[in-house]
Write a protein that binds this DNA or RNA. Structure first.
Length: 345
DNA sequence: AAATATCGCAACCGCTTTGGT
DNA sequence: AACCAAAGCGGTTGCGATATT
């Protein structure tokens, strides 16, 4: 059987989008939200299939997309996350705010992959050729360890999403109950429009704030998101938290996570990681922070005492040390890459 | 200047997952 | 539980731009 293609209707246009089509799509979504993608093209007066419209929107027209050159930081993040997660572009994209998975995927395939190959690093295993050659003599431990850790990270991400979904149900119920009780005291600040994965809506409709918002975009309550966890944000350092928001709402923001909300939370995890690496401390040595942080890759403690701080015994020390060395080697190779290091990163 | 090769990226394809009925 | 529609996702393709011969 199989599903019939969505674009097989005669007369539907394919290929590059014209500025006129972009304008129609933008105008329609600004006015109505996307609603059902399938019915959108007809309503918007476009000779396209819904899927094509959705892709054009999510990969190009969405206002929360950052376009243009990737920064050094972004490149490093992609390389490191790819070593960890493989070709899971959407997962990688959650750590790169405002970049789409498609853009990251393209950038990897056209730039980073080739660059690693040029440097003698296998873009699949992220191991240097020399290391590959000597792996038969027992140095494959790093790869095995990394693989093991990657499995844990994958499991963690999945569990996180599952828990988030479950807690959302609970908290939505909680919120609805509260909302029914306190309709007159509805929170003013949060743009709590729609956070399902299916419907994009325009926040603050009618109040002059026309900022568009996609299911995976950051929302305006984002920084409050981290407050209850004790995670500092830039603005939280600079201003007092506005405690007018109901704590229930904040709690909801943190825990109500559909898959799209997970990405939202993860987007901030990126900042969180940065905070940890900047030495805010106290959050515990998360796996991700251990692997991704510059502080790990670039300024590893050389003394065993420092390295083993918080690590219980010799085998655990080796475990961490192995991975630090692994990332160190990647970053050192990248840093000391011959000839065009200036353009490299 | 023309032909050819290579690169970069938007868009497509098809499979999987999710959510509603 | 089964079915279906829609969204998510990753691999691949097509084509315009640019570099090289």
């Amino acid at each position: 059987m199989g599903r019939s293609p969505c674009c097989d209707k005669a007369g539907l246009k394919k290929g590059p989008w014209t500025p006129e089509e972009d304008q129609k799509l933008l105008a329609y979504i600004e006015e109505h939200g996307h609603g059902s993608w399938r019915s959108l093209p007809e309503k918007a007066g476009l000779q396209r299939c819904g899927k094509s419209c959705r892709l054009r929107w999510t990969n190009y027209l969405r206002p929360d997309i950052k376009r243009g050159k990737f920064t050094v930081q972004e490149e490093q993040t992609i390389i490191q996350l790819h070593a960890l997660l493989g070709n899971r572009w959407s997962a990688i994209a959650t750590h790169l705010p405002k970049r789409t998975d498609n853009e990251i995927k393209n950038y990897w395939n056209t730039h980073l992959k080739k660059r690693l190959i040029k440097m003698g690093i296998d873009p699949v295993t992220h191991k240097h050729k020399n290391e590959t050659l000597s792996s038969s003599t027992g140095q494959s431990k790093n790869a095995a360890t990394l693989s093991h850790m990657a499995q844990w990270e994958s499991a963690r991400l999945e569990a996180e999403a599952r828990l988030a979904r479950e807690s959302k149900l609970l908290h939505l119920q909680h919120y609805e109950n509260n909302n029914n009780l306190n309709k007159s005291a509805a929170p003013q600040q949060h743009c709590f429009t729609q956070k399902t994965s299916t419907n994009w809506t325009k926040p603050n409709q009618g109040n002059g704030d026309q900022q568009l918002e996609s299911p995976t975009s950051t929302v305006t309550f984002s920084e409050n998101l981290l407050m209850p966890l004790g995670i500092p944000t830039d603005s939280s350092r600079n201003r007092n938290n506005n405690n007018n928001e109901s704590s229930a709402m904040i709690e909801l923001a943190v825990s109500s996570s559909t898959s799209s909300d997970v990405s939202l939370v993860k987007e901030h995890e990126h900042d969180w990681i940065r905070q940890i690496n900047c030495g805010s401390g106290g959050i515990g040595e998360g796996f991700t922070s251990l692997l991704i942080g510059d502080s790990v890759g670039r300024s590893l403690p050389t003394g065993k005492n420092e390295a083993t701080a918080g690590v219980g015994n010799e085998s655990e020390y080796n475990y961490y040390e192995d991975n630090k060395n692994y990332w160190n080697s990647i970053l050192n190779l990248v840093d000391s890459s011959p000839s065009d290091s200036a353009t490299m990163f």
